[in-house]
């Protein structure tokens, strides 16, 4: 992989991130002329407090002054204070980030592994019983809003049997040792991550299946068979690697959907991560929080896309050896 490819991809990612920052300014400062009107406690503010708030939110001066101030504070990761809790937005976000990282991380790994496996197997044996059963199942999974899965799991597994906790990050008051606490947290993680995995399994496996179908007629498979390779070797060593390539970028784009899914999943299970923070911010019209949460979500997806592009460069010899 040439340096030029890497630099080009990194610059592209940074430009997209910058576009998000500009978009944020446009939306929250120009489309919405006076964000303070959405502040619930505004009627109780004295004139002085109002002035302070306007200054603190960078709402004073011309639009250009505001823009400069906005870029400056964004670069310093200063997103103002939450309308709701009045704590700095950055603190709110860093406090809740780990929970979401674990949830989204576990679910993404599970979704990719299971989804790719099912998709590859179904595509390889097109029309077989496995293909028909798995494709219709994944179609139904794909059509189901992930929060509905969450509600069903909550009703069946948590509500009726009590095998799993109905929400939260951990049990309150159980603080006996590292192992116990780890087990407790894992116990709380099972249903939310299962929900998110079920919710996005469908799209990943459909992507992989289509990609697999595209490789079926390729000459190199005929060549591999002509060499006398076993059918299973043709699949794992020749078809799957080539089918994986186009799925890499499609999967990176789908990651944006998983981020969205985390918002509703965390809401169903009252799982205190960034998703629940987003849902709370919507109900409280907490503009500073929403603005920052949108930036964080976009940054995550842009980063994931960059990783996918670079992986693609590593995996695909045509890019690895070019230029």
């Amino acid at each position: 992989m040439s340096n030029r490819y890497v630099v080009k991809k990194i610059v592209g990612a940074l430009l997209t991130l910058f576009a998000v920052v500009i978009f944020n300014f446009f939306l929250f400062r120009i489309v919405d002329r006076d964000p303070l009107t959405k502040y619930r406690g505004r009627s109780k503010l004295s004139l002085e407090q109002r002035e302070t708030m306007i200054r603190r939110m960078g709402l004073s001066g011309s639009k250009w002054d505001q823009f400069v101030a906005y870029i400056k504070s964004t670069l310093q990761l200063d997103f103002g204070r939450s309308f709701d809790s009045t704590r700095p937005v950055l603190r709110e976000i860093t406090d809740r980030l780990p929970a979401t990282l674990i949830l989204v991380g576990v679910s993404t790994v599970l979704t990719i592994c299971i989804g790719l496996y099912i998709g590859a197997k179904a595509g390889w044996a097109r029309g077989s019983r496995f293909d028909r059963v798995s494709t219709s199942t994944t179609m139904v999974l794909y059509a189901t809003p992930e929060f509905f899965f969450g509600m069903l799991l909550l009703a069946i597994v948590a509500g009726r049997t009590g095998w799993f906790p109905t929400g939260g990050l951990r049990d309150v008051g159980t603080n006996n040792g590292f192992v116990a606490s780890l087990l407790d947290r894992t116990h709380h993680l099972v249903l939310p991550s299962l929900t998110l995995t079920l919710g996005y399994l469908g799209s990943y496996s459909l992507i992989m299946r289509t990609s697999m179908l595209d490789t079926l007629g390729e000459d190199y498979l005929t060549t591999a068979r002509a060499k006398g390779l076993k059918e299973s070797d043709v699949m794992t060593h020749h078809a799957v690697p080539n089918a994986l390539l186009p799925s890499v970028s499609a999967i990176a784009i789908s990651f944006g959907f998983v981020i969205g899914g985390a918002i509703t999943t965390e809401t169903v299970f009252s799982y205190p991560g960034l998703g629940l923070a987003t849902a709370d911010a919507i109900r409280n019209t907490d503009l500073p929080m929403l603005q920052a949460l949108f930036l964080v979500a976009s940054a995550a997806v842009i980063f994931f896309n960059l990783v996918a592009d670079l992986t693609y460069g590593l995996l695909d010899p045509r890019i690895r050896h070019s230029i």
Partner: peptide, 20 residues
């Protein structure tokens, strides 16, 4: 087009709906 493809659509829809 690229911008709208990359930016996660649900958070984008959320901020747009809150403002609009």
């Amino acid at each position: 087009d690229e911008f709208f493809l990359v930016v996660p659509f649900l958070p984008l829809a959320i901020v747009l709906a809150v403002i609009l």
